[in-house]
Amino acid sequence: MIVSVASGKGGTGKTTVAASLVSVWSRPVAAVDLDVEEPNLHLFLKPDLAGPEPVYMEIPVVDWGKCTLCGACSDFCQFKAIALLGASLHVFPDMCHGCGGCLALCPEQALTPGQRQLGEVEAGMAGTADFLMGRLRVGEAMSPPLMRAVKQRLGRLLATSGGDAVIDSPPGVSCPAVTAVMDSDFILLVTEPTPFGFHDFRLAVEAFSPLGAPLGAVINRAGEGDLTVQAYCRERGIPILAEILFSRAIAEGYARGRVVADLSPELRALFESLRDSIQAAVREAAHA
């Protein structure tokens, strides 16, 4: 079972919820940080990591002995990563999406595979949980290819462990967020009861509903703001699986790098109940 914790709006408490779910999970579990632009899960779960492993994307390299400057590659490239300028072919590695089209179509086989580093993957253990994270190279614009590389490793890990996974996703609802939550068995949306939280929650519901996985909501910092999110969840039939009341103690615990489920027996019980609701919803969806 793969559970993605996502949000729309940033800073609503995705990492807090993901770290707490991992800490109360009742089966073997992998904690996965797919917010590769700003990964934070490791700051709370404090895993022992084996060391970074670089991840690359294939980009074209020109073999000048073979290139006839025919321009077939630059005509084809949708991303303007290759340009024929006068009597010279220029490759712009940062623009390349790694589709491999230019290498496949060059009539002279003058393009050979090179690489651009996207970032790195780190793997290790956080207590008894497996831990996986991606970290985008500062200056790299494209996060989805690195996320796909992390997900490939997750697939191999789950195939051997037979366990579950809790994914901490990036904020937003565009292609990085969708890439993260795709293929999940459950999507948990963390929101806050404010106008910004509500607006981005609606966007997230719109973006993630077509993926077909059951959705559930966690309302963080409940008691602040207004009640529009709750009303919208009722209207759309999205179950509210937990409400975490705003408390200075939680905010300060988070600021000290603590896992919120470890702060008090009451909070632990709240996340255990959330875990049970998610597991029940996934079982129900599997039988439907």
Binding site: E38, L136, V138, A141, P171
Partner: peptide, 10 residues
């Protein structure tokens, strides 16, 4: 601006 360090922020 947007959160993160990826494409829209760059």
């Amino acid at each position: 601006g947007a959160p993160g360090i990826g494409c829209p922020v760059i």
